[in-house]
Design a binder for these strands. Structure first.
Lengths: 146, 146
DNA sequence: TTTATGTAGTTGCATAAACAACTATATGCC
DNA sequence: GGCATATAGTTGTTTATGCAACTACATAAA
């Protein structure tokens, strides 16, 4: 079924490229326009900390689908920006718990607003039903490969 | 509609993260298992050159949705690997035309086979109709933000 | 023909990813 | 207790991205 192969190939390029790149760049641009000087990778870490503070680096790895070195360096950079603090865990001395600073708390509402606006831009003209199916497909792709 | 917001937020994370990361990692792993020693970014450039040889770097930018510095460096690395050659254009002396080497030609069939296998793994259990809708959504997202 | 403006490509800098090798601490078993 | 093994986090190296500044060439208008 060569025709189907070709169409799948297109999906492939969408999944790995075009759409996610476009979303990432627009989000970064909108952060900058709003005067929010963080990267989207840093944002993806803060996003989980805003939901629940004091996560370990390993928990951040699981939440953000990154490996340990990536989280080490993202936390390094967030610490440099004074947005988080590493606090050694008392229960397990190998482990750091990551806490938000007041500066990071201040950033939350503006940042989430920009993210929501960007999402609305991205999904303009897309129906709720289409979104549900796209989510299902992307979820199945993830489950197939994780 | 806060419930819908939340569900959109999930799509967001799928588009920018989970699924595309999983696909990229699996593809890289499968290349390595097959003894194909290129990165998926290099592959995405070769992919277009296999379709049509002698593209300019600007045409590769458009085809791969990368900026010019990214293509400059990908072509640098592909040249180091002796997979492509820069040939100055005679029509426009600012422009390089990128040609595949015999080594790159040799790589094509194995590489495309691995890519197709990986795509089949990724889409296992996903129907043709679902794929079409996911493509449509990702395309609209891209068009909304490009 | 000169000048302005646009386009192709390169370079420098900061951030991030994948992978491998490493240290330190915890846990489970003899 | 003491040893093997697992887990949390760090560091080094290579590759890649985004942005800004730059060079060289092309084109169009005065």
């Amino acid at each position: 079924m060569p025709n189907n192969q070709f169409k799948r190939g297109e999906l492939y390029s969408f999944i790995t490229g075009k759409a996610s790149t476009a979303v990432a760049r627009r989000l970064q641009k909108n952060f900058k326009l709003a005067g929010i000087e963080i990267t989207i990778e840093q944002w993806s870490v803060l996003y989980h900390l805003w939901k629940e503070d004091g996560l370990s680096q390993q928990q951040l790895c699981d939440a953000t689908f990154r490996d340990k070195p990536s989280i080490t360096r993202l936390v390094d950079n967030l610490e440099k920006l004074k947005l988080v603090k590493r606090v050694p865990s008392k229960d397990d001395r190998r482990s750091n718990l990551i806490y938000l600073t007041p500066e990071a708390d201040q950033l939350q509402s503006r940042t989430m607003e920009v993210a929501n606006q960007t999402l609305n831009e991205a999904l303009e003209g897309v129906t709720h039903g289409q979104v549900e199916i796209a989510k299902e497909v992307l979820h199945m792709v993830y489950e197939n490969l994780k």
